[in-house]
Design a protein around this nucleic acid. Sequence first.
DNA 1: TTAGGGTTAG
Length: 541
Amino acid sequence: MSVPASFSSSPILSLTEAATSISQLQQVHAYMLKTGLFHHTFAASRLLTAATTISHHSLSYVESIFTHVHRPNSYIYNTMIHAYATSETPGLSFIVFLKLLYENSQVYADKYTFTFILKACARVCRGKEGKQIHGIVLKNGLGDDEYIKNTLIHMYAKCGCFEVARNLLDRLQKDDAVSWNALLSVYTQMGFVELARELFDEMPVRNVESWNFMVSGYVNSGLVEEARDVFDVMLVKDIVSWNAMISGYAKSGAFGEVLVLFEDMQTVEVRPDNCTLVNVLSACAGLGALSQGKWVHAYIDRNGIEVEGFLATALVDMYSKCGCIEKALEVFDNVLKKDISTWNSMIAGLSIHGSGHHALKMFNQMISGGFTPTEVTFISILSACSRAGLVSEGLMMFDHMVRVYGIQPTIEHYGCLVDLIGRRGLLNEAKELLNKLTVKESPIVWQSLLASCRNHDDVELAEYIARKLFELEPKDTAGYVQLSNFHASLGRWNGVMEVRTRMREKGLKKEPGCSMIEIDGTVHEFLAGEGVIVEPPRLKV
DNA sequence: TTAGGGTTAG
């Protein structure tokens, strides 16, 4: 079909790029169908591209446009292959790729096709197919394309063909950091941190991403100090560098370091993003650092950042763990786009507060809102029932979880269940339930039952459980300590002496308990029997 | 006429 000269500047086409939602795009689509514009492949391609940038989660609308294009060209096929390659179902790229190769003799694969399909091969680790496609690339005379070469290096490495990847890298004409990163990123993601370091030291060129791969590689292998050493000598740090280091500290529980680094970040020209704020809030939650948490909340408001998704969850969690349940509820109520995690964090918050009835009410509201509870929801709701002594409600919830939602109970659910039954004094029933569990998983739940024995003065069962725990976890002191305390509470000093002697003989020492509290904006961490050991700095307000 | 490689996170 011939295209008018003014076609590409048609106002309706610029509307495809202006659309910010599927429904807006569908209006443009309807207009195109009515006027026949949709029959122009170029117009359809603009619509298709706009649809791929808007629909991140579901490709059904993109697919429906693709199947209705009358005369698809390479661009149309490539856009569809790319959309699948970056989606949660990269394997579907192959179907479109085969259609392009064999169903349409008018259209040919080009350099874009190969970068996209090779990306799909890497995502699904299909080295055999990748190698075949590499053959087609060479046959088509595209073996010198820089983008294709870099994607090939990444694809081979991702599929475990490290020698082939390295060979391609060594044969490159010019040094490009992206080519080296293609291999480096795979080493760091797979946890081959020493290989990554060797490669990094060997690299003739590095860019900020190369450094970021090393920082996140060390962090993901639990080597936070090594990550910090790399971070400290970086000349250029971007938001990814800061977030990688901050999340490393957050993941390892070094919450004080998170706050220090966040403060350092404010002296440079890098603005925190949602990821930074989520990690800082989780550090505040872990430390009970309410004023720092409030500062982050104020920062969010000041900068007009929308409270949704991870950020909403983190804020609710921070306020709950810092003891401000009212504030957590207020934040929760103001979240416009709640997801299942937002609900889970609110229910967990109510559970921590011992507000069992309120947690159950929240659970029902969530169901009425059309949300499907997850494993995590039930852990919170069961522990809420357990903490608040709502035994029959808890048992009903457990039954509901299995029968209505088809969720297989995990060790955490059994832990809550044993706690619930134990509170009712049905200790032998709880014991029977536990003996059905696999040995590998059960120690923590046995400990929970041991606590119930103490509340119901069942020395015989306590001895039985303690013996069980000694067998399961000979190095763990928790069982010994609980039994010893139990004997002490009954004035059975011989029992106490016996257990303590057994601990000494095995060279075991109880780790001191610790707790944290914020006083006048400073977080103090107390070890049992000691003074203050941590004082994270206050943030600029 | 449109587009491409490596990218931190509850």
